[in-house]
Amino acid sequence: MTRKKRRLYLLGLSLGGLAVAAALALIAFQDNLLFFYSPSDLQAKTLAPEQRFRLGGLVAEESFEHLSDGITVRFVVTDLTNTIPVVFAGILPDLFREGQGVVAEGRLRADGVFEASDVLAKHDETYMPREVADALKQSGEWRGDE
């Protein structure tokens, strides 16, 4: 075969081999690459009691409340299948609200409540002007903060 053809095959095989190696590595490290666990993930897994991790999901509707000490807040994270209650005593991001996505970092207490040290808002990929959002809400076609 010509030298050019040989180089072409060499390139193709090398790239193919590299792709396979990368895929295998990523599959092997699946767990470590997860940025957060959902409440359902937690049901399936058993974690060490003091292990820190991130919990992600939606803030359940009508679950948000301020606790009596004036600083701590409590809300429930849901993935529409399972729920986990969360307490947090820090500053909430601007976008935090019920029905909105959230990622909380902290640990799961023995009583099943997640004690968060940090709370981030996670928003979806939908973008629209306020007027459009208002119109959708009025017409009843609002799909919520999916």
Partner: peptide, 20 residues
């Protein structure tokens, strides 16, 4: 592929576009 904080793509969705 993974749970990320960064949201999914808005522009490459077929069907209902995610960007006004």
């Amino acid at each position: 592929w993974w749970n990320t904080l960064h949201q999914p793509a808005s522009v490459s969705r077929l069907g209902r576009p995610a960007l006004d």
